[in-house]
């Protein structure tokens, strides 16, 4: 007669042979008594919860990373040029407080003050400029983007500054009566031979962060 297996044995019958008999009796019962499904379900459940925990960890790391880098991302966005404002059908582009239009583009412009150094030429740009800024002086920098990606600053190392040409666009004035923003402003750009202008970029600290105006050069 086999009793239910008692792992701790009983004081009454601890002789090795009696224990062996009990063990032998116990094995077939164990084999039948423990079906496979409860063990597998346990392992599968454990694996699933590990997977959920891992995914949860990953998601929370991403969320934390998003918040932790908020300052850096804002700074990167504001300091760079990321949003190009294009002109409308009439050629006017606007970024508050300025509206600007590229009226004339003249490569290899000849200048009264003398010619460009060997290996260089002057590109002449004539702009129509309007501004709603009447309380403070605002300037716009102008750069020419070449086909190979180089950016050339207008108004540097060029003649005629202060006369027919400006080194920066006047984009706002603190005294609209004495010093109004001229409606027509001309600039020269020093270009090395081989530079092909693709577009003209106008930018100012007064523009919203990351915005700049891009006017096609053709």
């Amino acid at each position: 007669m086999s009793q239910a297996p008692d792992p701790y044995g009983t004081a009454a019958d601890e002789s090795p042979s009696a224990l062996a008999d009990e063990a032998a009796d116990a094995q077939p019962d164990l084999a039948i008594a423990e079906p496979e499904s409860p063990m597998l379900t346990e392992r599968a459940r454990s694996r699933r919860s590990t997977a959920v925990a891992a995914v949860g960890l990953g998601v929370s790391l991403v969320v934390w990373g998003w918040f932790a880098t908020a300052n850096a991302r804002d700074g990167w966005w504001a300091m760079g040029d990321h949003v190009a404002i294009s002109p409308d059908a009439d050629g006017w582009a606007a970024s508050a407080p300025v509206t600007v239009r590229l009226d004339e583009v003249t490569p290899d412009a000849s200048v009264a003050d003398g010619s460009a150094p060997a290996g260089f030429s002057y590109l002449e740009l004539v702009f129509d400029v309007g501004s709603t800024e009447k309380e403070s002086t605002v300037s716009c920098t102008v750069e020419v983007l070449a086909a190979d990606g180089r950016l050339f600053l207008a108004g540097r190392e060029v003649p005629g500054l202060g006369d027919e040409y400006v080194s920066e666009l006047a984009c706002g004035t603190s005294d609209p009566v004495e010093y109004p923003v001229p409606e027509r402003q001309a600039m020269l750009v020093l270009l090395p031979d081989g530079a092909e202008p693709v577009s003209v970029r106008v930018d100012s600290p007064a523009f919203p962060p990351a915005e700049f105006i891009e006017l096609p050069a053709s």
């Binding site: 180089r150 950016l151 050339f152 600053l153 190392e157 020093l190 090395p192």
Partner: peptide, 10 residues
């Protein structure tokens, strides 16, 4: 005698 501004291939 301080550093100055220069351009691309200029």
């Amino acid at each position: 005698g301080s550093t100055w501004l220069a351009g691309p291939d200029i």
